[in-house]
Design a protein around this nucleic acid. Structure first.
Lengths: 335, 335
DNA sequence: TTGTAGGCGTTATCAA
DNA sequence: TTGATAACGCCTACAA
């Protein structure tokens, strides 16, 4: 009975099909009448070993019949690595573009036998270093930027690190916004800057690009207002500020969500986006597709770059170069 | 000494700070000059054992100095269970409410030493049964409904299953929408039904509730239009249909995103939500907070229910009852 | 108060 | 073509 130690002492009442005994590969071997090694060879399709077709099918059938599922922790322990790709995000609402990238990444990795799991991390809740005692990923994909200490914690772990930040040059989005508005004759521009920790790096890059374009074109300085998407009052205040400033005829928004909030605030004031004030976003989210002028990202190309980097990391190869054209202007009604 | 003959093969060329040797608890024991058991007792704060303060601090200091991190797979293998709570979602864009619930869940679980990981599953990409060979969760939280075969695959695994579907009575949201609009004198109502696999169950429940309210109040049947949020044309078509139907003065939307798309389409036509057509959503997402009338969910209460269910599952206890008032009407400008 | 020993499920190595 | 065995890192009953 001491052999049963590890397992739950079976709380007196357990009629539910609770923690049944795990079906191990040893069970499959025993029932099949072969050795554990043979089972392993068959289940893993080991190339070198030649297994007779009869044995192979017998093992496969037995495994299926008994409902054997390889046990991930044991496998990881033996191999010294897992098949988990952990996507670190600061917020589960990490943006429609990243959502789609992760979907495509998981699709691509499924063929290789890897899986993408997402974790929302917050050093205040659980230090990153504690994470490795709970999950042991093969590759960590940092969605969005990391601080230097965060990076080093990951580097110190045994996982390889892939950064998505930097693949898409977010500053170009800001530049494209300004360039387009300027081409339509707008001279004095407002800028709606998003203030949330989870998007800070991206937000700063976009603003930087917009400022650069303004300078390059010799336009007056941007009228930057900070928006907290959780507080609609900041949108109203920003809008009223722009409307009160003579000459401002257009606004660049950090993204489509902010842009839509501005549009809604305009409507509240009996004004119309695209008529009384030009508004341009970034992302081309579904809700934008009705009428918002925006900057679209080539998600497939972006995802391909991420996929390439992750596959290289898995194979312990140097990351492939990730350059390409990812951004495209979409003109609709609001600007 | 034979222990030292392990002879790490040291692949000829390995200049990169690649897969360094893992620091094991045995290393900590050896360097500290104590047994492996002692290290384990100290690191896990085992209550029964009394460890001298000196030993305790020595071990802790050594572990920190060597950078020892307990290795999750080994721990899971020994214990027969992991500390992973896997949230299954059909789409990473699984809604702002669920995003917040997962955040609160992870916060609550951090204290217990568990972690929440999210996985976007799609049977067409990777059968659920394959997942258990890649990750071995202690608890699976199904965000949104599951099909019967999906449920049984999870039940067959060794993970416990927690369902979030059913905690919040989504049909009540539909009822509240209709009740409110009726109270404002609207008689003939449109309904914007969302057509996406990832929200189907919720969408059907909300529509069901709306229909029930219409019947109860003796109003004419709902003019239901199906919206595909990825295709703005469906929004325009739906709106034109309602506008062309005499007597329709208000529309219930499946959620705020759909509602915002309708508002944008109204603006495109020179009309205004709340004036030319009443619009009401569900969710109270940030972008709605500017002017959209909507139904808000008490996310904290919802999350508390989920947290309770997950903690019970971890402790192998029966799930606590999850009843409560989760929904609240928020009146703004659009209805 | 601390140490010893055994085993969790899997896979690689070696032998048959 | 297949089988026996050791090892991955950790935890814990039992012995000292």
């Amino acid at each position: 009975m001491s052999a049963e130690t590890g397992s739950t002492p079976a709380p007196s009442g357990d009629p539910a099909p609770g923690p049944r005994k795990r079906v191990t590969s040893a069970d499959v071997a025993r029932v099949s009448g072969v050795s554990r090694a043979t089972v392993s060879y068959v289940l893993n399709n080991v190339p070198g070993k030649a297994i007779s077709e009869g044995t192979r099918e017998l093992v496969l059938a037995t495994a299926r019949r008994l409902g054997h599922v390889p046990y991930a922790p044991a496998r990881s322990l033996r191999l010294g690595r897992s098949n988990i790709v952990l996507a670190l995000v600061r917020d589960f609402a990490f943006g429609p573009v990243s959502h789609r990238v992760l979907r495509l990444l998981d699709n691509a990795l499924a063929e290789r036998g890897y899986v993408v799991l997402a974790h929302r991390f917050d050093e205040a809740v659980r230090p990153l270093s504690e994470l490795w005692g709970l999950v042991s990923p093969n590759v960590v994909v940092a969605m969005g930027g990391l601080t230097v200490p965060e990076e080093s914690v990951i580097t110190d772990s045994h996982a390889k690190l892939v950064r998505t930040h930097g693949i898409v040059h977010q500053d170009l989005a800001g530049e494209m916004q300004v360039d387009y508005l300027a081409s339509r004759g707008h001279r004095r521009l407002g800028y709606a800057f998003a203030d949330a920790p989870s998007v800070r790096l991206v937000a700063e890059e976009r603003l930087l690009g917009a400022r650069r374009a303004v300078q390059r074109l010799g336009l007056p300085e941007l009228a930057v207002a900070t928006i907290d998407t959780d507080d609609p009052a900041t949108v109203g205040a920003a809008l009223d500020g722009w409307l009160a400033t003579p000459g401002i005829t257009a606004v660049c928004a950090h993204n489509d969500e902010v842009a839509m909030m501005i549009c809604a605030a305009l409507t509240s004031r009996g004004l119309t986006a695209g008529k009384d004030l030009a508004v341009i976003g970034v992302d081309n989210v579904p809700v934008a597709r009705v009428s918002l002028t925006t900057i679209e990202m080539d998600v497939q190309a972006y995802a391909d770059a991420v996929i390439g980097a992750v596959l290289a990391a898995i194979d312990d190869e140097p990351p492939p170069p990730a350059d390409g054209e990812y951004l495209r202007l979409i003109v609709r009604e609001t600007a």
